[in-house]
């Protein structure tokens, strides 16, 4: 049972909180980790800058780097007009990054391995793009689906493809993050269980167990990269989608 690679994704009710309609909402392990992420991010940014030093210390430097990293990403892909979405993109990036990184600590729960979470986040981006796009550009927002310089006879096909790709964005956006995190954690667990299985099989088993152990070490390093990269990819795709809402004319 301890080696069941799916068990780590189990949502566990810790205590009931409210009842909405017929649905009991309980405080879960997932909720606890989300709350932990909020606390960690806030402490990192506010605690790190507590001294407001002109010459930053390590933690303040890290906080400033994170700020400027997201700011540069957003400004370079959505322009200075996109900076009004800076808190949104920053919250998305740090929230996902913190959840991914916390999930890498053994015995923890990874909130982003649940598709409902990543789908909700990506749909919030999709709706933001739609609402802001129509609010700012009105019907010109439809220019997004009509690239310039396309011959009239293939225009219907192009528009169909553009609309389809636009509508599939939240799906790819959410599944990319969810699938990466899920697959990584299953792989880690599977290889880790090999260590247990082999080391139980005498001396040669012990020797053989070093191989999956080395793999788990390497995979953990890879997962660390993936944890960061997926948060970054989610953030930069958000920036690109927001750019479409701000400048729909391509």
């Amino acid at each position: 049972m301890a080696t069941d690679p799916i068990h780590q994704f189990q949502i566990i009710d810790l205590f009931p909180v409210v009842k909405i309609g017929h649905t009991e909402i309980a405080f879960t392990n997932s909720a606890a980790y989300m709350a932990l992420a909020v606390v960690v991010i806030t402490l990192f940014l506010v605690g790190g800058t507590a001294k407001r030093a002109l010459v930053p210390g390590r933690l303040q430097s890290a906080a400033e780097l994170t700020y400027e990293f997201v700011a540069t990403t957003l400004r370079s892909s959505a322009g200075s007009e996109g900076m009004k979405f800076f808190p949104f993109v920053f919250t998305l990036f740090t929230f996902i990054l913190a959840l991914n990184l916390i999930g890498l600590i053994p015995y923890t729960f990874t909130v982003t391995t649940h598709v409902i979470i990543t789908a909700t986040l990506s749909i919030s981006v999709f709706l933001t793009v739609l609402v802001y796009g129509f609010w700012k550009n009105g019907l010109h927002f439809f220019n997004l689906f009509v690239p310039k310089g396309i011959p009239i006879y293939i225009l219907p096909l192009i528009v169909f493809i553009e609309v389809l790709s636009f509508l599939s964005r939240p799906i790819s956006h959410s599944v990319r993050l969810f699938a990466n995190m899920l697959a990584g954690h299953i792989t880690l667990k599977v290889f880790a269980s090999f260590i247990i299985l082999l080391s139980g099989a005498g001396f040669f088993g012990m020797v053989g167990a070093t191989l999956p152990l080395a793999l788990v070490v390497a995979l953990t390093a890879l997962e660390l990269l993936v944890a960061f990269l997926q948060a970054y990819v989610f953030a930069i795709l958000t920036c690109i989608y927001l750019n479409d809402a701000i400048h729909p004319g391509h």
């Binding site: 909405i20 909720a31 909020v38 409902i116 979470i117 909700t120």
Partner: peptide
């Protein structure tokens, strides 16, 4: 588990 996850996600 979707309802509770959504609920807590929105709050967080």
């Amino acid at each position: 588990t979707f309802a509770s996850q959504l609920f807590w996600l929105v709050i967080a």
